[in-house]
Design a protein around this nucleic acid. Structure first.
Lengths: 189, 189
DNA sequence: TGAAATATAAACCGATCGGTATCCCTTGTC
DNA sequence: GACAAGGGATACCGATCGGTTTATATTTCA
């Protein structure tokens, strides 16, 4: 049993390929060759491409939020600092090589109907991010943590889109400045 | 010569199909049958599917901004009112049947490389929207119209994503409340 | 009316799609 | 040493992809 199971190899390759080239535009054959795995093995672990997409999105959700939380807690000590540090963490992400926007926004674009299972996973991811913001906002003593969370989340989404569509890698800094205003209004900081 | 030329029929069908089902997921054959036109005619007017995509995006840009400006000017009289009316216009859009997010955000997701011609058109569209906001901001006497425009634009983007990915059709109202804060800070209103 | 242009429907092209089946070889286990 | 399981390579399946061709209307206008 290798360090990475076959299943993990497949999902790892799918993460990059789907992210950088899109879901419909990436064939299973490509995923197999990139993972160094035969088609038979892929369909041994996943019933269909759609199931692989689902598993890949779930893995991305786990990896993304894990990294976001780690970075946020590294860059800030108090909850209030961390609410702003999230924007810095996003700014660093925007500057990474291979940045292609938010995988879930991209997936929601390709799986547009909101009752599509893939779309639902995207909505869940966004809710979990919002929950994290809400938690930090509550810890920071915000007057209305959930509202503050929705506001900050909206700023994050806007920054991600600006960064990807318009290639504006400074969008995170703008969003951060805007976020400060709402932190103050919620009696945070 | 009919009310709509063949070319217009094709683009009109492509607008809906690409918007609701995605670009890669929509075949040219489907566009033809929906437009009531033969494949040969399509390729008589467009050298390739890619060129059709490009033409469709450009048409969408024209239609979208035209409607946005008309609605904005209908819902508000002063430039300051209109800067807020844009959010109301977006709110109405989110509630339209068949709403599938911003076609340019969706296209940027499928044509991810920022030097892809299709992606470039998306960035241009976003710039033109920002320019409109900037123009209104200047008319409203904002202290720094371009900064205000970037702020409002970021809020709009965030609202669109929230509305589509998470199905939150009230995102426009939230964004509008947030926008008011920045109008005041720019000495508008 | 007659010639030129433009349309259609359909067959057709090679390539690729998601997915299956076959064959053979390696691997671990008793 | 026998044996089952899993995986690799590959051929194959029907369907669809973007795109071309052909043969046959239909339209347009001098």
């Amino acid at each position: 049993m290798p360090a990475q199971s076959k299943r993990e190899q497949i999902v790892t390759s799918a993460l990059t390929l789907f992210y950088e080239n899109g879901f419909n535009a990436t064939g299973v054959e490509r995923v197999c060759s990139e993972a160094g795995v035969s088609k038979k093995t892929l369909y041994n672990h996943f019933k269909s491409k759609d199931e692989l997409v689902l598993a890949t999105l779930r893995m991305r959700d786990a990896l993304f939020r894990n990294k976001m939380m780690r970075e946020t807690e590294r860059l800030g000590t108090t909850p209030a600092e961390r609410l702003l540090a999230i924007f810095d963490a996003h700014g660093a992400w925007f500057r990474e090589k291979g940045f292609s926007g938010c995988m879930f926004i991209n997936a929601a674009a390709e799986f547009s109907p909101q009752d599509d299972p893939n779309h639902i996973v995207c909505a869940e991811h966004k809710r979990l991010v919002r929950d994290y913001l809400s938690e930090l906002a509550a810890q920071a003593g915000a007057t209305e943590p959930k509202i503050l969370a929705r506001q900050l989340n909206l700023l994050l989404e806007g920054a991600i889109v600006e960064a990807h569509v318009s290639g504006n890698r400074e969008a995170a800094a703008l969003a951060r400045e805007m976020a400060e205003v709402f932190l103050l209004r919620a009696n945070v900081g």
